[in-house]
């Protein structure tokens, strides 16, 4: 990696501080909360945090960030969506309109059920690390289908829980809620 990279976290709502704190553990990264087009212009890469996708999507539209963000992703800016962020990226969302609609995946919201069905797992994601890492699923979505150049990185109980397509990474789980930084390291490699 050449020089310091600025990684933004979309900071309308959700697990923003958790992502910023994790990024803060990398000396080569400057972490920046992003709420405006000006802040978006300053980042080399962006994380879309966990939260409520309907809320974040509405705020993206209202505050004029939806289109500039979509353009930056289409131009190749590395982006990583966790949970709600994965829903924002998907080209298809079962039962509702897509949001950013940039990634060749179809996702189902709250696919596992209510909060009583939230769960924790330990799984190996071969592309990320050879050892199992802790995965926290909170009212999580799953990927029903991936097409084009979108590749599943992890399949859990028959459903895709992580996928990569070129500059886009999507995880149904929340690395920001654990101490494990391996998915962050993987994302940093995508920035180059």
């Amino acid at each position: 990696m050449t020089g310091k990279k600025t990684i933004g976290v979309l900071s309308f709502q959700g697990s923003v501080e958790e992502h910023l704190a994790a990024l803060g553990r990398f000396p080569e990264v400057t972490a920046l909360p992003v709420k405006t087009p000006e802040a978006l212009n300053r980042v080399d890469a962006l994380i879309l945090p966990g939260g409520e996708s309907t809320t974040i999507s509405k705020l993206l539209s209202i505050f004029g960030l939806m289109e500039p963000l979509r353009q930056r992703i289409l131009q190749g800016m590395p982006v990583w969506g966790t949970c709600a962020g994965m829903i924002l990226l998907a080209k298809e969302v079962v039962g509702e309109q897509p949001h950013l609609g940039v990634m060749d995946i179809a996702v189902r919201r709250n696919a596992y059920g209510s909060q009583l069905d939230s769960f924790t797992a330990n799984e190996t994601i071969p592309a990320v690390l050879g050892d199992p890492i802790p995965l926290v699923f909170i009212r999580a979505p799953w990927v029903e289908r991936a097409w084009g150049t979108a590749e599943p990185l992890l399949t859990l109980n028959g459903h895709i829980a992580a996928a990569r397509q070129d500059n886009m990474l999507a995880t149904a789980f929340h690395p920001e809620l654990t101490d494990d930084l391996s998915v962050y390291r993987y994302f940093l490699q995508m920035i180059g």
Partner: peptide
Amino acid sequence: YERNKNLAQMLKGG
């Protein structure tokens, strides 16, 4: 209990 606290974290700022 951790996951229940986590859900509240997802609601922050909302």
